[in-house]
Design a protein around this nucleic acid. Structure first.
Lengths: 336, 336
DNA sequence: TTGTATGCGTTATCAC
DNA sequence: GTGATAACGCATACAA
């Protein structure tokens, strides 16, 4: 490669455009940003020069000068979860409407590194949407200054004055329980998610409330958050310990459903089973899954809306809590 | 807010650390990067100063100076497609192993803007993984210089010398057809994906080859790439035009399956149906879906591996083509 | 309206 | 080993 070729290979800079157009860099900058009033003649010269050099302003240098990257970060505990995928998609779309791009970081359920990942991701962007349901309150509070501006999704704010968009898991759980009680169920099993998950704690405490009130008997089974977790626990459901199963989420419910099917247990005739989230394919399982529907794409939109306010130096809209919608499908039926 | 408070609110810079530690910025930089040999005493002073000021180097400024962002972009046509979600996840994980972050851009099936989006996303990063199956060859060729270094996923390279990781759709389709022929099917319907999709063209031409050879009769039904596309077309399958249906992808197959179920058509007894991709829930539909399995997470890994080579100035590994694996499940059976 | 000069926060080159 | 100083590429007060 000749020296000249190498020179041409390197992206053109604003200086070279200015030189070619016979103007100052400032003028080029003004033209490129469409700002100020530049003489039509000069403007045209600049455009021509930019075109021949195939000039593209450096986003990096621009960001450094302006102090803004037009990029936000999303940190989630598990990209494999359809819930987060939908949040990702809707957040990406919403941010795009304001010319912002999305940087995605997956902590891979690694609670220990979650904080570092979040901080690191945040430092590359202007703001952050954080889904870290298992991060301890103290850690979150300690990290908050480094994460700001940011918005919390799917966890309580730990007393911080941080905008959040949440789901009213307690209400969703109450609806599911009421539905199952109405079908005559009294002996319940809960397939518990990650113990440190705040949403799991909310669901669990709601169930315990019912149990304490004598409305139902509750068996708590440690499980997890994935399909295989649910699948693995199916064997423990067939000893007649319960007639109704509520899973931590749809994924777990799916797994249990599949496992029970393999064990020859008929759902909902022998056991009713309900999930949580209403992920896209919940309606296409066999039988279709009764669940509490949370709207992930609205979550992304609301999160963006709040982060956008923060980026503009304005106060964010009030915290929002989505009330899950009970969706009754074929996986729940009258108690045996 | 007082002037002092505002000053403290602004992130500390390398200059302030240098000032506090009584050294030059260069020394601070050396300490922070663990490079060179710095006198232990100075090193300690710098660390202390950095700690008290809560100093975090600016990624932005660093990127500008080094000429590298340690970020790559992924452009996909549809984030809602589970296939791309898996590619996203695996690419993100693979890149993370080398300290790289992932910027994601969704063209939302908007072929017209896909080029602009790709270029814009690329300019924020060091490299790009491009899934743009519908982008015309000429446009891709024209954009290539601006996109480099980049890797193509899921489309032919249009004669460009660009690393690519692909799926051998023709082979997968041949396996599906052989399977169905073996079950006695002769009258086939193909639920066609987007006409401009290169993978759709590959699947279609393979099917036409069988038809031309007199091995089967082929009805081509314009459809699409989504669940609802498949659902909408179900009504056109019940006039006895075929005994076997091959869908553009699993999503479409799902939709058709669901639509046929609503129409009271029994699968696979009246009609056999097969998908393509083997997305996670393909095995949990009713009946479970026969499909050609492509490994999305390996796609992400292979794409990263090639991009990583390119970023290092080395030639990328040879193009790779994954051979889909035929997965026979309950949605296909003997011809009626 | 246009140009000059300076700042954005680093890293890297070169003297010392 | 350490410190000035010049890049990196752009935006923007300020002056003209």
């Amino acid at each position: 490669m000749t020296a000249q070729a190498r020179e041409e290979a390197r992206p053109a800079t604003i200086s070279r455009v200015a030189e070619l157009a016979g103007v100052s860099r400032a003028t080029v900058s003004r033209v490129m940003n469409g700002s100020s009033t530049v003489a039509p003649e000069l403007s045209e010269r600049v455009r021509a020069a930019a075109a021949t050099l195939n000039y593209q302003p450096s986003v990096l240098a621009r960001s450094l000068a302006v102090g803004r990257t037009s990029t936000i970060a999303l940190v989630v505990p598990d990209l494999a979860n359809p819930m987060f995928q939908d949040v990702l998609r809707s957040l990406s779309h919403a941010a795009a409407t304001r010319g912002h791009r999305l940087l995605v970081a997956d902590s891979e359920e690694n609670v220990a590194e979650e904080g570092l990942i979040a901080v690191e991701a945040r430092r590359r962007c202007d703001g952050l949407v954080l889904c870290a349901p298992r991060m301890p309150d103290e850690e979150l509070a300690a990290l908050a200054p480094q994460l700001a501006p940011f918005v919390l999704v799917n966890r309580d704010t730990a007393g911080l004055s941080v905008p959040s968009v949440n789901v009213d898991y307690a209400a969703g759980m109450r609806d599911l329980v009421s539905h199952l009680l109405g079908l005559g169920h009294r002996r319940f099993a809960y397939l518990a998610g990650p113990p440190t998950s705040s949403s799991n704690q909310l669901r669990l405490s709601t169930l315990r409330g019912f149990a304490a009130a004598g409305k139902l008997e509750l068996a708590e089974l440690d499980c997890g958050a994935t399909f295989s977790d649910g699948h693995a626990v199916a064997g423990r459901l067939i000893d007649g310990v319960c007639t109704a199963v509520i899973a931590y989420n749809d994924l777990v419910a799916f797994g249990a459903l599949s496992g029970l099917h393999e064990l020859g247990v008929s759902v909902p005739h022998q056991i009713s089973i309900a999930g949580f989230d209403d992920i896209p394919f919940a309606r296409y399982t066999t039988p279709p899954l009764t669940t509490a529907s949370v709207p992930p794409s609205e979550i992304g939109q609301e999160a963006w809306q709040r982060l956008w306010s923060l980026l503009g130096g304005e106060p964010a809209a009030p915290d929002i809590q989505f009330r899950p919608r009970l969706v009754v499908r074929g996986s729940t039926g009258p108690a045996a």
